[in-house]
Write a protein that binds this DNA or RNA. Structure first.
Lengths: 224, 224
DNA sequence: TGCATAGTTCATTATTTACTGAACTGTAAA
DNA sequence: TTTACAGTTCAGTAAATAATGAACTATGCA
């Protein structure tokens, strides 16, 4: 019923719910049971919290058999959580609070690549002048358009999407930028498709395959 | 002591504190007493809440005689609150919760112009091809650079600033974009300087002077 | 000096809200 | 149709925290 900025902030500002949202930041859908594992609470308590997030329009559910899959209702939710994360002083470790495994090396951030590898790739693309900073945004160069096309990514097509094309996203662990937006999402998708990377079972960590390591070294000179 | 995304969200998610932060969104410094008026609580309760916001690094104080002036510690705080505001469903009125006077006509949003007038000005600049949307960002055209220069605003200089140059900010009341970022702040500053606009005493409302009305009509065809 | 004002601190009370256990619905497999 | 599992709902209880009243510090002004 009641809905306001206060209400929404109070929803995020509760440890169990914050952990739920934090888990969902990888962009995948989770069942209540799966969420309960990372969050460490009882199913009925979790259900109560999910209900609140649902009623506030932050999450959406999709029923599949006896499972109910929860995801963010819209990308703005991830944006808001990101904005809050950027308020946390750098010295303070985020994962301490979130009780997650140390996934600072290679992980996803909502739907794009983050962590040391995400930052390294982004910085390599800038160094190679395939991406450039324009004000506080990122943009592909003509050379970059060609480069992405070789990977099967059509920049013109991605630009049509409603969401931001390519924006720098401040990395929580690295405190440096990695590539976000539609282009960042497309790049991660291609890398998973090409079996360079594989998502791990329960966390936001991503592991590189043997093939992937070679490719990443060749394309971006990412040190392993 | 403790500091995390949960902690920060819970700080924002309390009605009294949310109102404090909301008041400070106009970018000005307020004393505890001034804040108590809009927030409608006792000084000692307000002091408690201000202390919490202070310790979390969201606010900063400056003592001047027996007055203590509170402001946002950094612009990221305003960004985070904005991100939360954008999560509130459109049908829901924000000011209902915040108990403010209806200031949807002409008001400031942190340090730039918002409300009906803010939106009208921004849309006029786009219509006149002085500003253009690039992906999800705004940019000045060569013609726009010249136009801003006539107002005494050096776009090249503003671009040097660390903050975003020109970004569209979703207006809470209008649900349409107004100009934010360094350029938006510079424009408001110039308008106040030229006495086109005058800030009102306690609220975020801004009133146009006779001179200002004429100028706004001439430059932007803003209907009064 | 004395008094009013601005603001804070502290102990106590009141209120909110998250958690617990038990009972309940619906789907899947034996 | 029986058992197991996924998930929710609903009581009561427990824990966290915001508000209250009184006492306190510091500045400004007569």
């Amino acid at each position: 019923m009641e809905n306001s900025i206060t209400h929404i902030a109070s929803l995020i500002g509760e440890p169990v719910r914050a952990k739920i949202l934090w888990t969902l930041m990888d962009g995948r859908a989770y069942t209540a049971r799966e969420l309960a594992i990372g969050v460490e609470t009882t199913p009925q308590n979790l259900s109560m919290h999910l209900g609140k997030l649902l009623r506030a329009g932050l999450l959406s559910v999709e029923a599949q058999g006896r499972h109910r899959y929860y995801t963010f209702a819209r990308t703005e939710v991830a944006d808001a959580i990101e904005a809050m994360a950027n308020l946390v002083p750098a010295e303070q470790a985020l994962r301490k609070d979130m009780g997650a495994v140390p996934i600072d090396y290679c992980r996803t951030c909502y739907d794009h690549l983050a962590g040391k590898v995400g930052v390294a790739i982004t910085e390599s693309l800038v160094r190679q002048k395939l991406l450039v900073y324009r004000d506080k945004e990122l943009d592909v160069t003509p050379k970059g358009v060609q480069w992405f096309a070789e990977l099967g990514i059509d920049c013109g097509e991605i630009r049509q999407q409603r969401r931001a094309f390519a924006k720098p996203c401040l990395d929580w662990t690295e405190r440096r930028h990695h590539l976000a937006g539609a282009l960042g999402a497309a790049l991660l998708e291609k890398m998973l498709e090409a079996h360079w990377l594989r998502r791990s079972a329960q966390s936001r960590a991503v592991v590189a395959t043997a093939k992937g390591r070679q490719a990443l070294e060749a394309y971006f000179t990412v040190q392993w």
